[in-house]
Simulated assay, not measured.
Amino acid sequence: MGRIVFSISVSLDGYFEGPDREIDWHLVDEELHRHFNDWLRQAGAFLEGRITYELMAGYWPRAGDDPAATPVEKDFSRVWVDMPKIAFSRTLDENARWNTVVWRDVDRKEIEALKERTDGDLVVGGPDLAASFAALDLIDEYRIYVHPVLIGRGRPVFPTTDARTPLRLAGTRTFGNGVVLLHYERA
C-alpha cells in the first residue's frame, strides 16, 4: 500500500516561492539532487497540481537531451518522464503526455483506492494540491527541505487553517550545502 507524501523545499522563513514566484534561491546541488533521484525513483506515482505539472513538463522531458544538463539532472529527467503521474486540473487536456492522467478533483475515495493499489510513495507536488489533500486528512508524511536562506516574503508553504495535525519526527538529514530535511509522519 502506498503512502501519500508531501515534499517541498522552503526557505528558513517558511516560503516555498518568492513574491514573483521565483525559486532561484533553492540550493539543489549534486548531493541533494541525487538524494531526490534515489528516493523518487522508488515512488509509485507523482501527484501534481496543474502549476507544478506544467513547470515540470516544461523542462524535464527535454532535460535528458540538454547538453548543459548534468548527469544527475539527466537521470531525474528519466525518473520524471517514466513515473506515472496524476495531474489534478480542471483545465488541462485529458490527453496529457509523459505517462500522465488528469483527474479533475481530489476525491477521498479515489485517493484511498489509489493508495491501496499502489506500491511506493504517492508524492504530492505543489502546496495548493497539498492543502487540498491536508483538508481531507490524506497526507501520511511530510518531507520538508529547509534551505538556509531568508527570502523575506513570498507564498508561505502552509495556508492558515483551524485544523491541527499531530506529527512524529521520523528523521532528519543535513546536506553539505546546508539544506536540512525534516521528515515527519502522522502521529
Results as ranks from 00 to 15, higher is better:
29 D>C: 11
134 A>F: 05
35 H>D: 00
76 F>G: 07
182 L>Q: 04
93 D>S: 12
159 P>N: 14
50 R>C: 03
12 L>A: 10
6 F>G: 06
125 G>E: 06
172 T>I: 02
157 V>P: 02
163 A>F: 08
100 T>I: 06
124 V>A: 07
178 G>F: 00
87 A>W: 03
179 V>K: 05
127 P>E: 04
128 D>P: 00
133 F>Y: 11
112 E>T: 09
115 K>R: 14
9 S>I: 00
161 T>V: 04
25 W>H: 07
93 D>F: 06
72 V>W: 10
102 V>M: 05
60 W>V: 14
101 V>L: 00
186 R>N: 14
125 G>A: 09
64 G>A: 09
134 A>Q: 08
142 Y>A: 06
121 D>T: 06
33 H>I: 00
88 F>C: 09
86 I>A: 07
47 L>S: 06
139 I>N: 05
14 G>C: 13
186 R>I: 13
166 P>N: 11
114 L>H: 14
182 L>I: 10
126 G>Y: 03
32 L>V: 09
165 T>N: 15
146 V>C: 09
101 V>H: 02
78 R>Q: 13
73 E>G: 09
25 W>Q: 08
135 A>E: 15
30 E>H: 10
16 F>M: 12
32 L>N: 01
10 V>C: 05
5 V>F: 00
123 V>H: 08
76 F>Q: 10
2 G>D: 01
181 L>A: 01
153 R>D: 13
15 Y>F: 14
109 K>P: 03
89 S>H: 04
136 L>R: 12
17 E>W: 11
78 R>N: 10
45 A>K: 14
142 Y>D: 11
47 L>K: 03
